[in-house]
Amino acid sequence: MNDVPSPAELDALRLSLEVAVRSVGFSLPLAVLVAWILTRARFPGRMLFDAFVHLPLVLPPVAVGYVLLVLFGARGPIGAWLRSHFGIELAFTTAGAALATAVMTFPLMVRAIRLSLENVDRGLEEAARTLGAAPLDRFVSITLPLMLPGILAGAVTALAAGLGEFGAVITFASNIPGATRTLPLALYTAMQSPSGDALALRLALLSFALGLLGLLASELLVRRVRRLLGR
């Protein structure tokens, strides 16, 4: 009888969590910025920008992974630059898996944050203005706290979705045990092996539990923060 859970399973779980957390940490500030631009800024090409941000929702994940490989691979324009200037390697690394996950979950996060920003009463920002608050001050003291439920919901949803990102990760970061073999990749690998049925089932159930937990946590967190915000 094998150890349950096996070191490989624990590795996959740990990696999945690490990749998801890093991807959210990396993309959250950017998602707030993009949500703000999409909600408040008026510029030519806004619709195109909007569509571009949402592209990962409709593209095959493999295609996203491929584009990342072309851009961020060792010989890609951005990848080569990052490597020579900062010594950062993305393709076939955990950081790369996080990048691929971030790109895939970005639209989810932007949508949630944007929705909450649209619900922020501009009148409150005007009131802050008459009380002497400059633009950045208004954003930090009024807008940001009021959109906090949306930011948290976006982050937790992206985190839960990020635990299970498969196509873009395997294409861009490959399936390296201990580096990029996250839960879904381990599950896929187990399914390919003739004796992996039990392992595959366990990993599938684990993914299921994690997803459910993530969504529930998101809902509870949002309710709690709403109450704190006085709504």
Binding site: D121, L124, E126, A127, L146, L229
Partner: peptide, 19 residues
């Protein structure tokens, strides 16, 4: 700019900060 006018404004709907 509004924020440097030092003109107070009491709105019809109060507009208190809910948080």
């Amino acid at each position: 700019p509004v924020e440097r006018r030092r003109i107070g404004y009491v709105f019809q709907d109060a507009r208190l900060f809910p948080h």
